[in-house]
Every structure is written in C-alpha cells, then in structure tokens.
Nucleic acid binder design. Structure first.
Lengths: 112, 112
DNA sequence: GCGGTATACTTTGTTATACGAGGTATACGC
DNA sequence: GCGTATACCTCGTATAACAAAGTATACCGC
C-alpha cells in the first residue's frame, strides 16, 4: 500500500527492530523480508532502510557483523541486542496505546 | 501518554478530522475534546492544533465560521465538509492497513 | 570472456510535520 | 481591579522517510 508520506514516521524503527528480533538479517534481505512478512503493506526502499540500520546500530539496539565467506558477496548481518529488545518492548507498548487512542477517536465517526 | 515525537506524524490530521466529523468544534474546545475522548492518550498543544486546523481548512476538508454572539468570546467553529468526509474515509482505510501491517510484523516478536 | 541480472551496500538533497515557547486579548467571578 | 479560564496566533527547530544515483561483486548463459 501507498501510505501518506508521514504516516509511517516513527513506526519504521519499531517494525524493523521486530523483524530483526525474529531472525538475524542483512539489509538487502530485510527489504524483502519486510515486504513478504507484511504481505506487501510495507515496502521500504534501500535508501530508507540502510540509514535506519546505521542509526539503530549507533544506538546499540542492533549489532552488525560483516559476514563475507569466500566466494560470497560481503554483507552485514544484524541481530538485536538486549538493549534493543527492551526498546522493542517499549515501542510496542507505545504502538498499542496509539492504536487504542485512534480506535477511541475513529470508532464513532467511521461507523456512522 | 508520551509518544516518541515522530510516532504521531500523519495520524493527527486523521483523528482531528474524525473528531470534528462527530461534532462541530472550535479549536480550544477541540484540545480538550481530543484529550477527553482519547482517555488522555492524545494531548495536543494549541501550537500543534491550530496550524493543523488552518491547513485542513485550506484544503477544504473542514470549514470554519466565526461565532461571536454578543457578550461572548469570539471563536471559530469548524465542521467537516463532504470532501473532508471522503478524506477521512481514505485516511481511516490507510490507518487500518498500517495497523494490519504492524500486527503482522510485531505479532511474532512480542509474543515470544 | 562477455553481457546481463540479481545481490549488496552507500550517500545526498528534499519535503513536511509535531512541538515548545511565547504572545495577544476577552469574559467572568470575587 | 485582579486572577483565572477561555480563545486564538506565530515562529523556529529537529528529524524522518524517500527518491535518485552511485559503487561493486557474484552468477549464469552463451
């Protein structure tokens, strides 16, 4: 789906964190994983994803490690850290609250 | 609740539109209405709300009318327009998709 | 050994948005 | 006349998602 540009803001870090938490991933793989798992709802470009990964790593929420076996394209595999896991929990909670708030406000008008 | 700054982006127009749709409102009243109806989840400041109202009006999604009876503080009452109603429907649909996408991605990791 | 395609990572510039902080002005109770 | 609640307005800041463009390696058919 094509979202209004601003609607995704603040959610991307969370669902990226969640996806990495489930399975260690490198960037390029993550682009496809996100699209697949979300049934096509989220389709981040590489220009969006990579900078986010760098930032998450800088914050210590994920840890990247170069993984270049011989005869293989070198790639950076990320896995979630304990700190990242705590952040994910906090973010998920915030997300639930946002959803609840929206349900309270949208409920009435959309069911008219 | 205190949200990460960016999380609300893109959602505010939608829930403001929804609230105005339910009942014509002026700005100051809307600040309280939003807080009340969302059970304290959304607490927009006036510095956030007013500029959004101007923008929604400029786009023709809401229509404002000065309402200053004698012996009363003048105030601008907004009501939703037919165009605004269509926009609200579209935004609500986007919101549902976002929620669905997040559920797909967060589901696995948060239930671990 | 040559060309095309998929993989994999990187950087830059643009646009817009929520928010805090500050400001103005009127009604009303006491 | 004084404080408080009401009501509106404006500016500056931070930052986030994205498109677009670029680099470079592996693999496959021929």
């Amino acid at each position: 789906m094509r979202f209004d540009r601003e609607l995704l803001k603040g959610t991307t870090e969370t669902f990226i964190l969640a996806t990495v938490a489930e399975m260690p991933c490198h960037g390029y793989q993550l682009v496809k994983q996100l699209k697949l798992k979300s049934e096509g709802i989220f389709q981040l470009g590489e220009g969006t994803l990579y900078p986010i990964l760098y930032k998450l790593e800088a914050k210590g929420w994920i840890a990247g490690k170069w993984d270049g076996g011989t005869g293989q394209r070198r790639r950076r595999v990320y896995r979630i850290t304990p700190l990242g896991r705590r952040q994910l929990a906090a973010r998920s909670e915030q997300w639930s609250e946002l959803v609840r708030g929206m349900a309270l406000l949208l409920g009435a008008s959309t069911n008219e």
